[in-house]
Amino acid sequence: MPFVKSFLFQGLAVAALADTLLLWQMPRILQWHSQVIQTFLDWARVPWQMGREITLVPGITARLLQTSYLNYQEYPYYPWAFLGGAIAVFLIGYRLWPTPIRPLVFLLPASLAITLIYLEIVSPLVPYTPEDFCSIWYHGEAYIWLLIPWIFAVSFFTLAVPFVMKIGWLPLLISYAFLWSAVRLTLALTTFHYFGPIWMPFTYFIFGFLADFMYIVTFYSLALDRAARWLATRREIWQ
């Protein structure tokens, strides 16, 4: 059998252990995460300073970064230009975009339009500062990091392949999650600094959790592919 029930418990034990380790090392991980972002922000020439401290889970805190965003009162045409550009890109490229991607690309002008309406009608400022955005980001990401081992425990550890083959993917995925999260948050903060807060909802909805699930599933599929190859060499009799 390519799947073994007892390996599910093995996976659950590994997940529990991984989460314990993660929680134990979380302050260091967050510190490292913050340092990476600081370095990236320096490269992007985005001024920053240390902000307030937030509690992610009881006993674990993170220091946020304070950056600024473009003031649209000084550059009133910027948001309109971004929206116009996004609409133009969508319309001109409509026939070029692969059909299944079109609804996803449509979200770009849609999110910019909604934000612009909000900025014009409700308030000239979005409800969040970049520091608040960091806070939302850290809350969501920390929970995803803690969830990753459990997703893998159920979906991957049940495979009847050597333990070493399975366990290797977990640190790889979690490390990627840390690094990719830092890169995305830097990109978001840089975008807010240079192009303003109109990009905030798009970054939040598309570049945030959806992107997280993309790489988790990608890692899962790659891991499964390797495992399936190994299983095929064992001349297993499939059920």
Binding site: L159, F213, V217, T218, D225, A228, Q239
Partner: peptide, 27 residues
């Protein structure tokens, strides 16, 4: 993922993440 393994498939499972396109299109 599990069905591909049960069927003895291999490389095609790598396309799994592209199902997001299918999902958004379907929605």
């Amino acid at each position: 993922g599990t069905s591909v393994v049960l069927d003895g498939g291999q490389q095609r499972v790598r396309l799994l993440s592209l199902n997001i396109a299918n999902s958004i299109f379907s929605t």
